[in-house]
Design a protein around this nucleic acid. Structure first.
Length: 599
RNA sequence: GGCCCGGUAGCUCAGUUGGUUAGAGCGCUGGCCUGUCACGCCAGAGGUCGAGGGUUCGAGCCCCUUCCGGGUCGCCA
């Protein structure tokens, strides 16, 4: 039978009980973790979010009602305990517990809430399947390691708020019900009851609003903003996620980079007590691709890509020559010490490359005297040695070669590089290597749409020296855009925006937007820019990813209190669900499935 | 939409070439134990082998379909 809390007031949290309180009476409330019974002696582990403390009941000396209640207590009952903090004898100290030098001798016990047998143990160490964890997420969140991620998340949010406030930023909310902007990710739509057939979109980011706030003169804005994208999930992607979003006026690239380096430095100092060295390296996009095959390079290890097109040019090997003739390239990486890989393992590497569109891989096994290779028919020893030399190949190395269009070569080798590093276990998750990737291309050619599209978004400013080539050579134009990258993960990115109407016009023209089209899509922003737009720019961090890297979480689900599963549904609430026909009628929505019962 | 991995007791898993009554550890229930701390000891309960179909004398195991979960490519300005 559960009892009232009335008359009892919690005096401290479980994890806060310490040696300085010996002799004091405390009142604790929490969940019963383990209950251990030794004849007339019972130990209860009492847990709350701060930690665990042991309570002890000696049947021989306790009131009979305590003894009776104690016998009915089971795991995860919520209890209130009043008692005296006492020191444990030397031999009974538990060094593994923060509160292990003390325990509570119980003088009053109340069962506030009973609990059924739980579906999985509330412990850090147990490995429980995701489905079950998410169905009972409120129990999963009782596990100290899971709770600790959520607490870290809170701390980071507070650091961000404090830091940016001190830097002169204002926290301003922007609408959740907003306008669909067709370019970019798929929108989540919300039907309007008042305007049948019309829809709001949930924001993919507060991008346009924060630019409007600059026009308004708020100068520096930030927001910890929920964003929504209706795209498929990944281990680091959820349909709703959180950005630390900011925008600044009268600044250029260096200013944005400076304030954000200091922000990240502060977060890592306060959360992990690690001193991050600033300023970070800045690496132009082109260099990142050439050296690492990625625009978010993991620079904790080298294994860099080498361009061997010039060496292999003019051979009879059709695969290489076709790639070169088609405007592509031949590049390679040196998997140090992987020469001993059995055929099966090499085939697995080829499969990785194929995932990214490569048709295959050639490889050279560097031996003590000479090489063993798949391309011996086409290249003489001199050429092969030249390749080995270009990759600093030594005996025992495995050189992997990919020939194709540049995009495929970069993707495939970039992915291989990471895959091999993972297999060799050379990545240290406590080694934090930051960099900025800068000078992104302004445009990206879309095969699908047969035109250039904005790589970032259409308000991204070109680099001052590239304005002249926007129309003549858009493919080479670089943007004032920057991504902060940590250990191969894009933590955040942003750009300086276009604030000059003439430049914006050229930009739209290059993108193939007519005046009318631009006006229809972004008219409110363009109108705003007519009335005095300051030079401005900003950046947005993925808060979830920052927390992942700080906590070492392998999935984004581990840093979000109530995450969704692969098909974007919620196992806890069973959202999304079929709604009542009357609800749909009000919204003027007619669906065939309406009224279909759920199984 | 494609590819890969998984689903056996409440949990984590084992289950041989297809062969009698499907196992272990933890948890759970009951009992014993006065300093446990992953307490220990004894006993017990607990299974639609994700679901449906097929092959077979016989299916947890083989085949097909399907559901659920994970990873990944596409997608994510």
């Amino acid at each position: 039978m559960s009892e009232l809390m009335q008359g009892l007031k919690r005096s401290c949290m479980c994890g806060e009980v310490n040696e300085n309180m010996i002799g004091n009476e405390v009142t604790l409330m929490g969940w019963v973790g383990r209950r251990r019974v030794l004849s007339h002696l019972t130990f209860l582990l009492l847990r709350d979010r701060t930690g665990i403390v042991q309570a002890v009941i000696d049947e021989s000396g306790a009131e009979s009602d305590i003894v009776e209640k104690e016998k009915s207590i089971r795991s995860e009952y919520v209890v209130a305990v009043r008692g005296i903090v006492q020191a444990r004898d030397e031999e009974n100290i538990n060094p593994a517990m923060k509160t292990g030098k003390v325990e509570i001798s119980v003088t009053e016990l109340r069962i506030l809430s009973e609990a059924d047998t739980i579906p999985f143990p509330i412990e850090e160490s147990v490995n429980v399947n995701t489905e079950l964890r998410l169905k009972y997420r409120y129990l999963d969140l009782r596990r100290p390691n899971v709770a600790s991620n959520i607490i870290t998340r809170h701390k980071v949010s507070q650091i961000v708020r404090q830091f940016l406030t001190e830097e002169g930023f204002l926290e301003i909310e922007t609408p959740m019900l907003t306008k669909s902007t067709p370019e970019g990710a798929r929108d989540y739509l919300v039907p309007s009851r008042v305007h049948p057939g019309n829809f709001y979109a949930l924001p993919q980011s507060p991008q346009l609003f924060k630019q409007l706030l600059m026009v308004s003169g708020f100068d520096k804005y930030f927001q910890i903003a929920k964003c929504f994208r209706d795209e498929d999930l990944r281990a680091d992607r959820q349909p709703e996620f959180t950005q630390i979003d900011m925008e600044l006026s009268f600044i250029d690239v260096d200013d944005v980079i400076d304030v954000n380096e200091r922000l990240i430095k502060k977060i890592f100092k306060e959360i992990k007590n690690i001193d991050i060295q600033t300023p970070f390296i800045r690496m132009p996009y082109k260099e990142a691709m050439e050296r690492f095959g990625s625009d978010k390079p993991d620079v904790r290890f080298s294994m860099e890509l080498k361009n061997i097109t010039e060496i292999v040019k003019g051979s009879d090997f059709k695969v290489f020559q076709d790639a070169i003739d088609g405007g592509g390239s031949v590049r390679a990486i040196n998997a140090k010490g992987c020469g001993s890989f059995p055929r099966k393992k090499i085939d697995a590497l080829v499969d990785v490359a194929k995932t990214y569109g490569a048709k295959g891989l050639a490889w050279i096994n560097v031996l003590d005297n000479g090489v063993k290779t798949t391309i011996s028919k086409f290249f003489d020893d001199e050429k092969l040695n030249e390749i080995v030399k270009a990759l600093d190949g030594e005996s025992g190395d495995l050189i992997l070669i990919c020939a194709d269009k540049d995009t495929i070569v970069f993707d495939a080798l970039g992915a291989l590089r990471l895959d091999i590093a993972k297999k060799l276990e050379i990545l240290d998750n406590n080694d934090f290597k930051f960099l900025w990737v800068t000078e992104f291309p302004l445009f990206e050619y879309s095969e699908e749409e047969n035109r250039f599209v904005a790589k970032h978004h259409p308000f991204t400013s070109p680099m001052d020296e590239d304005i002249d080539i926007l129309e003549s050579n858009p493919g080479e134009a670089r943007a004032k855009a920057y991504d902060m990258v940590l250990n191969g993960c894009e933590l955040g990115g942003g750009s300086i925006r276009i604030y000059r109407r003439d430049v914006q016009k050229i930009m739209f023209k290059a993108l193939g937007f007519s005046e009318e089209e631009a006006q229809k899509r972004f008219g409110f922003l363009l109108d705003a820019f007519k009335f005095g737009a300051p030079p401005h720019g900003g950046l947005a961090f993925g808060l979830d990813r920052i927390i992942m890297l700080l906590t070492g979480a392998e999935s984004i689900r581990d840093v979000i209190a109530f995450p969704k599963v692969k098909d974007a549904s919620c196992l806890l609430t069973e959202a999304p669900n079929i709604v009542d026909k009357t609800q749909l009628d009000e919204l003027a929505i007619d669906i065939k499935n309406v009224g279909k019962e759920e199984n």
